[in-house]
Design a protein around this nucleic acid. Structure first.
Lengths: 189, 189
DNA sequence: CAAAGTAAAACGAACATTCCTTCTTGACAA
DNA sequence: TTGTCAAGAAGGAATGTTCGTTTTACTTTG
């Protein structure tokens, strides 16, 4: 399964042939088809696994009480995503996530599961933002959901950049986000 | 070409057959193969086009003087991406960008071009952040490049969310980012 | 003995691409 | 105005290949 993951991350789900996967994992067709009914099932299993890593990391981070500041929260999530999930490199994980995102457009079942998972994430992070507002850290006139989606977007953008270049460290994005948080906005309109 | 774009956005580059494209654009194989040497050439042309939209929007935004605040800058970029580029919906554009990102992993030539374009974007936005620092808007102890990549990540994350759900408006992310910019950070460490 | 895997062959379906035919256009001569 | 013709453009069936999958008989492992 780890070999199939590497194939899919490297070449995409549909540009990877079963023969590629079989060669990479060193098994015969009979062995793989004993456990997966077909290529689609294999794709779904691997997409599910990859997205579960995302969901769990986001979810766990949002449950911390009191919630750390956004930059720390994001760093926590991203480190959680990239660490101890059996992926060879951070870039490989990012590439696989990109493939999963792309696949949701055409795989309705997968799309529904991704949508459900993201809804949970969004709710959790919205709650975190509300807590910021309760503490007076975040301005009260901001719609919590919008701020939550902005922060999630930051994390997703980090993953995308990691997939594309693989040269970004979590600490760098943390420092960058912290800088944005600490900006002095001239005209509070 | 617009029809091929729609096919690729909907189904991905490799899960879309030439027959799908031919049916969508209403042309025969002979007609298409007169202008594109093959499927790869068609993919590259469409990927280039999509990414050029991104590059131009980022580039143009970064050249504004004096630079607007990040939330306005981001809103400007995203609106520029989504408007008047011949794409049917914002979601469709996002889905195509996702496909292009995923394709860079396996198409070296395309990856090189994307890398070059992003390098330009990054440099421009780093310059913008430095200008913020000169004006005292952004803390001076933040590495400009990190902040620039964080902001780019925000934009990329927005595009990804747009691709996945299509229910996010630019103004919402602008408000969310503005909220983050206006946070009161308790312990300036 | 039984579960799990191997190796190789074979299958139809789907695929990208080619090749030959047909249609369209526009300049030019009668 | 009309007819001719060459060249470009498009059509569409045919081709050879690759793919996912199944099947079969045989081997390893516990």
């Amino acid at each position: 399964m780890v070999g199939a993951r590497r194939c899919f991350a490297r070449n995409g789900f549909h540009a990877t042939s079963m023969q590629d996967v079989l060669k990479e994992v060193g098994l015969s067709a009979g062995a793989v088809y004993r456990y997966f009914s077909g290529k689609d099932a294999l794709i779904e299993a691997i997409a599910d696994e990859a997205f579960a890593v995302l969901r769990d990391a986001f979810d766990e981070a949002a449950r911390q009480s009191p919630p750390p500041l956004p930059d720390e929260l994001l760093a926590y999530v991203l480190r959680k995503c990239f660490a101890g999930t059996g992926f060879e490199t951070e870039q490989e994980f990012g590439q696989l996530v990109l493939q999963v995102w792309g696949e949701t457009a055409r795989n309705e079942a997968l799309g529904a599961r991704v949508f459900a998972a993201v809804s949970v994430m969004r709710a959790g992070w919205t709650a975190v933002v509300k807590e910021y507002q309760r503490q007076g850290i975040m301005p009260a006139d901001v719609e919590p959901e919008y701020a939550a989606r902005t922060l999630m977007g930051c994390a997703m953008g980090f993953i995308a950049q990691q997939a594309l270049f693989g040269d970004l460290e979590v600490g760098q994005m943390q420092q960058g986000l912290r800088g944005v948080m600490r900006m002095e906005v001239p005209n509070p309109s």
